[in-house]
């Protein structure tokens, strides 16, 4: 099935369960709990998926570049941290957390290089928290998350070849085969 967030589309196999999580009417608690965009379960992995499109064709350019700047300087990390934790709590209450979920951030920004993705990933791992100091590792019996990964569209495709990602606008404007 095809997951859509604005101009970004990701194709998941039919065996996957894809839930659009941040719908206020279905969620019921968005006034006091933050929510990631999607919760996807496939092949035994649960992903809390957040998509940030900083190059939406219809958005005004200075708006998106201001947002991109906020992302690059780590100002969105607080928001992402709460989205992860609140989604975790909600899913725990639903008794739908069999394995620690993955937090996956897909950032559509062509200028973003792997070095920057790595830097963002490392910082997010520190705050979610995913990477833990020694004192905590001794006390915690189970992790909150299986991992935190940050992708752009190109690296997403490289590491998840089975989940095709594309821009809806690119598909619409290309000539028919």
């Amino acid at each position: 099935m095809i997951l859509r967030e604005g101009d970004i589309e990701i194709e998941f196999p039919d065996t996957a369960q894809v839930e659009r999580f941040d719908v206020p009417s279905k969620h019921g608690l968005t006034h006091c709990m933050k929510a990631v965009d999607f919760v996807v379960t496939d092949s035994g992995r649960t992903f809390f998926l957040e998509i940030k499109d900083f190059e939406h064709p219809a958005a005004p350019p200075d708006r998106t570049s201001a947002d991109a700047q906020r992302f690059l300087t780590g100002q969105l990390n607080e928001d992402l941290k709460h989205k992860f934790r609140d989604t975790f709590l909600y899913k725990w209450a639903e008794k739908k957390l069999s394995d620690p979920p993955w937090f996956v951030l897909l950032v559509a920004l062509t200028d973003l290089t792997e070095a920057e993705l790595l830097a963002q990933q490392t910082e997010l791992q520190r705050i979610l928290p995913v990477s833990l100091p020694e004192t905590v590792k001794k006390r915690w019996k189970q992790p909150l998350s299986s991992g935190c990964l940050v992708f752009n569209m190109e690296t997403w495709q490289r590491h998840f070849p089975a989940y095709r990602v594309r821009r809806k606008s690119a598909k619409d404007s290309s000539p028919r085969d």
Binding site: T113, E114, A115, L117, L118, Q121, V130, S131, L132, V136, K137, Q142, P143, S145, S146, G147, L149, F151, T155, R158, H159
Partner: peptide
């Protein structure tokens, strides 16, 4: 230089996806 970072990033992601990631 870019390629070297690309390689590191790929290895980090692969290690996370296929291996132990607690902490």
């Amino acid at each position: 230089i870019q390629k070297t970072f690309g390689d590191i990033y790929d290895r980090v992601v692969q290690r996370a996806l296929t291996g132990e990631t607690f902490g």
